[in-house]
Design a protein around this nucleic acid. Sequence first.
DNA 1: TCATTTAACTAAACCGGTTTAGTAAAGCTA
DNA 2: TAGCTTTACTAAACCGGTTTAGTTAAATGA
Lengths: 336, 336
Amino acid sequence: MYLKDIASDLNLSKTAVSLVLNNRGNENKISQKTQKRIIDYAKKHNYKPNQLARGLSRGKSETIGLIIPNISDIFYAKIASHIEKKAKLYGYTVVYSSSNENPEIESELIRSMLNRQVDGLIIASTQQNQADIQILKDLNFPFVLIDRHYPNIETNFVIVDNFGGTKDITQHLIKNGRKKIGFITIKSNLDAIEQRLLGYQDAIKANNLEIKSENIKQLDVVDYQKEMKQAISDLVKPSVNVDAIVFSTHYLTASGLRELKLLKFKVPQQIALVSFDELGAFDLVEPPITTSKQPVLDIGNLAVEILVNDIENKNLKIENKNVLKTKLLIRKSCGI
Amino acid sequence: MYLKDIASDLNLSKTAVSLVLNNRGNENKISQKTQKRIIDYAKKHNYKPNQLARGLSRGKSETIGLIIPNISDIFYAKIASHIEKKAKLYGYTVVYSSSNENPEIESELIRSMLNRQVDGLIIASTQQNQADIQILKDLNFPFVLIDRHYPNIETNFVIVDNFGGTKDITQHLIKNGRKKIGFITIKSNLDAIEQRLLGYQDAIKANNLEIKSENIKQLDVVDYQKEMKQAISDLVKPSVNVDAIVFSTHYLTASGLRELKLLKFKVPQQIALVSFDELGAFDLVEPPITTSKQPVLDIGNLAVEILVNDIENKNLKIENKNVLKTKLLIRKSCGI
DNA sequence: TCATTTAACTAAACCGGTTTAGTAAAGCTA
DNA sequence: TAGCTTTACTAAACCGGTTTAGTTAAATGA
């Protein structure tokens, strides 16, 4: 059932039908009687407009594109879920794609989404794609960066206080008497990862402890599972002998704990540990893991609010640069 | 840069440009020289067709719609990730939406996806929406059901052997000497959930144990966290006194273990437990949890293969009704 | 009572592609 | 050298909506 069918069935023009079904009947002086006929007929035949045709002629698709590194990472999956729910409230559908941390794929995805006429983009960027972000900005195309942003481009963003969050968990270890604290992170140019390292170092410094390079391990993003073995054994060997470890991501924490268990270490008695970011069952793990939890709900909601505001030019006074606080969840792994 | 711009810049018709850029230059006898001019010019100006216009006129969108209960459930997130990767190989983009187990939302999503001219659908249905599935079938619209299917409609599907998987883990408990085995599941009409109960019961029967209704707890899908307390205390009270519990989903397992820990039960010494389906850190939990792991990679890949085969009418002989086996991962929670 | 306004519509252009049905010119055949 | 093919294109219709610029008939005003 197409618009023209309704029109011819009711002996009306496509225009009249289109106007009425878009709630513009009154302003266009279509009589109440005719409006009712159209609406009733459309409802009766369950008419739904072809969104491609609609999008093509209006230059709008009521669709938000979401580009994230990986939908199977629970962190991004949760954000995606919140984004979807919030977007739905505003009448938008979400198209998502994963970049797998590959800037070329990200670039291709951005272009492909534009060709699909998405009305706006939410991007957790690889942070190695400044060019496309700049293009989006120059085009004045609505978009919001989440989780990662480009410090030297002025954009909307919703990120997390990685520095503060990591500083918090590190301080917490120190407060509980740990003095030789290791830090395991990934090799990465991501600002978020950099900030976590700085947060760790800042906590160490602030407490008059020494920042030792031998205490800091940077693993390959892909091969971290293999490299974890070496990293842990380096940190526990007598000459280093850390009494606590800060992990910069949830998957590193899981991997590290796995390794410590294999080596029969007592956590937290011999080695305490804390994690930046949370995994589903971190409260069930033995020992339950102290984390800085990221506010995934807020990230998703805010991103959509900013984006929709931008798309629809509502100019609600929404702060468009957001650094959200993490929440410290104290559990046993830090050795209280 | 639009098609017509290329055409006028090169003094050609839109037709010629369109044909060449769709690799149909040769069959339409466009000279090699002209083809090269077009291709070079398009590349130079980074021309990308408007997908809405393309979709509208071809009646195809190169898009697959994915409808799942909840993208933030790691099980579906993983499937979504595999679907996306596989779909990309075939040149399709994925649009997803979550139904939140609400059949009305599911129905609305199916219609909305059709209006968006998706070329095919992959649906993990609420199983309370037979009507729409039947409509899709009657329309001869390409779709594949995953995770849940409608036993009395002939459709493509990729599901998991819920019966066998649950029977396996239950048998495993029995083999290890457990005799009074509880079963905690959710109240649900889902065939998958039903099959898990039957698998549990079948294992009990096959081993000449008694199926007791007091051993079986069915919790509300939404309020399971609250009801878990009561369920566990019912199962452990002296008159029932189970020595093992089978959980029918990963989140029930997490919740149940949390409760058992609160009550200071020794798992698996006093109560062993096994889980149908896996959560990220189940190997790190204390004790590590024995599960029947679902083959998420295969579910995703197969679903896309069947769907694309269907969409493109390739008629590769792909089995279109698939019941995949789960994999038993034996860890300490079952008390070996 | 005739000009003007208003109510209630509609025809046709448009969005940016694809596709059908040609066409002009060159090449080939008899 | 007229008639048929083939080559290398193109004009215009089409996809299914939205939107602009009217049009017609009735109502109002001076």
